[in-house]
Design a protein around this nucleic acid. Structure first.
Lengths: 228, 228, 228, 228
DNA sequence: TATGAATGAGGATTCATTCAT
DNA sequence: AATGAATGAATCCTCATTCAT
């Protein structure tokens, strides 16, 4: 009576907890109704997160805002983190779109810098609510800190490439380290946005654009003569 | 000592009809397609219960295993208990069939005991998965505890009748109380199966058959001379 | 500005969750008051587990029975499993004590078997409530299944040694495999107790002792002549 | 531009007295032993906050680190916020001291900017652990958000006064709005520190000092000829 | 019949703070 | 002053079951 095989299987059966959540969750809903509910939850989450912050947001608040039961939430998202990720991702996409500068060659470098700065400020203002929350979450969650870092790097790298290009064209100071310079300038603009739009130090939009543009352009050694 | 009567009695005992929530549910399906779906659910449930245990089995797991939606489940069974009952019933019927000893009169009592023991062990092994789960459910559900008791009594009564017969024939100790003796011997065999096949204490099949048979036969005072 | 070391440390600080529970829990309380509370919780747990079973026992039930708040429970035990372990362990200790047979050499083997059987029945009856719950928990929790197995093995090994001793003395059948025989006999007695004391099949205590003793002794080939 | 006044102003701003629950708590301890305990708690809190963050720090952790009981904590501080305030205050005082530039008139503006930048970076690195936590707390606690803002304003105002002075001296662009410019440059330096020292983007210290100084000085229109 | 979405009751657990010595 | 025990509010999450197509 070699019981080992059976017994081993049984011992497993009696105790191994199966993956608690079905594989369904996180998949795209199959019906229109499901898709609508998922969308309602996302919209509700954006509202509640921006209003209450990540920490103070309860799943039930999101569900209530979406007018569904709390159980329904879990049909679509596993955790608060999961829905926050989804919410932030669409925000980021919009942010990138809004903050980009179309490469039109007839613009002068100074105008390009000014346009990039203005677009960034406007885009940040548009999404300040959720970006502030991402900032919050990044302070205690490694995954979101990484996400925040990647967003940051995207902007910094774009800037870095622009500086390198101008250095090759010989129109700005070639001795500046492009990467470090880009980091500093990105810091200047992004943190100015945070301080003014999230913390509430109030500055006139156009004055801010003008000041940041001047500091940026002059800082890297661009010749402003005839410009401003 | 044909198993059929026992099995029939038991099947009756087990099929406690409850008020159906809809007139449909619990009735035999009318269409072929329905019958096939019901069968698929039963097979799936047997697999999942044996694999995960009763507590960890979710309706959605059974539905998934049967490749139907969870809603469909409730077209055929009212509750998790209901399908478990159905699954166990067919298991028990097979168990009784497998564990029975055909009444061939030319066999000696010792051989009959040995055959019964061997068949029981083999049948238990065959169904150990679900029997272990029934054991589990019986510990927290009164209905299934009662079911388990009835199964047990069926075996014990069969044994009891066999002992009484041998006592009348004067070939075993007539002073033993048949019922209590049968209870003890049933305990010995069934719990030995549980310990070896479910808990995993490892014994050679033939050694086990021999030992149990010897203890049983000698215990009730059967003369083993010339036999073993 | 090599920020790596600092930054690495910080990144950790901002996210690595420290062990949630303080090391205090599980330690012996430092004051009398604490010891009294712990004892009250253990006593309450024994009552509630035996009454409601493991699955249906809520932490709040135990706390309520002990007349403390639910938070207090967690000052002494981490989980329901932890307090169950503590409760069961003291039960097992008492069980072992009660079921043991002092080795007084002037007793005959038969009397020793009878005494052991009677003591086991009495001890099991004394603790039937909690033993039934251990049986329950063992069906779905690997740790407790192992605990149950060890208890079982303790009894079986004791029996096994006794049989081997008698085989060496030449007073029982030397051809029986001691281990397997002990397993079978332990099954007989322990499961008889379970069926009669937990499932409620009612047998007269002395009749049970007599029957089990007879089956046991005669089963291993002990000469009962002059005895019974 | 001595830091002492700033620090004093700030210390005032930070010490918002709240109604003490007991007349004792929050007062300076009367005995030496009490003073020592309070100090131990502060040191412990600095360690634990920096290690675990504000959210994950439990009062019991601080007490344990200080080797006192949790009850003792409340003899000295009313809440977790209260001790965090005290810890941050001393950190800020040290930060201001370290980041200040002694007013030696014989230094050129460029050297003063460079020194201020270098000192800020060094000071930030020194206190990065707790500054990161203040950043965290500021994201969900209005009181600390205000504190963070005041610290920020202190630096910005100092910068703003410096720029105004240079504008009056006619050595930098007089058309820049001093306040807004100071905000932008403070953003650049402080956020660069955060990104490199807290988030872990790695830059060489001297390269960073040089780059930030160049961007800063050139940005406000300081003549670098003959300098760099 | 089949589908998959919606529901919501119910219990574990944490930890800042208070309390009794 | 110090101790350590006691408190309890507050939110998460599961999953059997029902419902609308």
């Amino acid at each position: 009576m070699s019981s080992t095989p059976d017994a081993a299987v049984l011992a497993d059966a009696l105790s191994t907890p199966r993956p608690a959540r079905s594989a369904e969750v996180g998949q795209a809903p199959r019906t229109d109704r499901g898709r609508r509910t998922r969308r309602r939850l996302l919209d509700a989450a954006a509202v509640v997160f921006a209003r209450d912050g990540f920490l103070d947001t309860k799943i039930t608040d999101i569900a209530a805002e979406a007018k569904v039961s709390s159980g329904t939430f879990y049909n679509y998202f596993e955790t608060k983190e999961a829905i926050f990720t989804a919410v932030i991702q669409q925000t980021i996409e919009r942010l990138f779109l809004a903050a980009s500068v179309p490469p039109e060659t007839d613009r002068s470098p100074l105008v390009r810098i000014e346009t990039a700065t203005r677009n960034y400020l406007l885009a940040y203002r548009e999404h300040a609510g959720l970006l502030a929350i991402l900032e919050q979450v990044a302070t205690f969650n490694a995954d979101f800190r990484e996400m925040r870092r990647e967003i940051r790097q995207t902007f910094r790298n774009r800037t870095s490439r622009g500086i390198a290009r101008m250095q090759q064209q010989g129109i700005v100071d070639a001795s500046l380290p492009a990467q470090c310079t880009a980091e500093a300038l990105t810091s200047m603009v992004s943190n100015f946005c945070y301080v003014s739009l999230v913390l509430g130090e109030d500055y006139d939009h156009e004055e801010a654009v003008r000041t940041l543009t001047t500091l940026w352009a002059r800082g890297i050694g661009l010749d402003l003569a005839g410009g401003r």
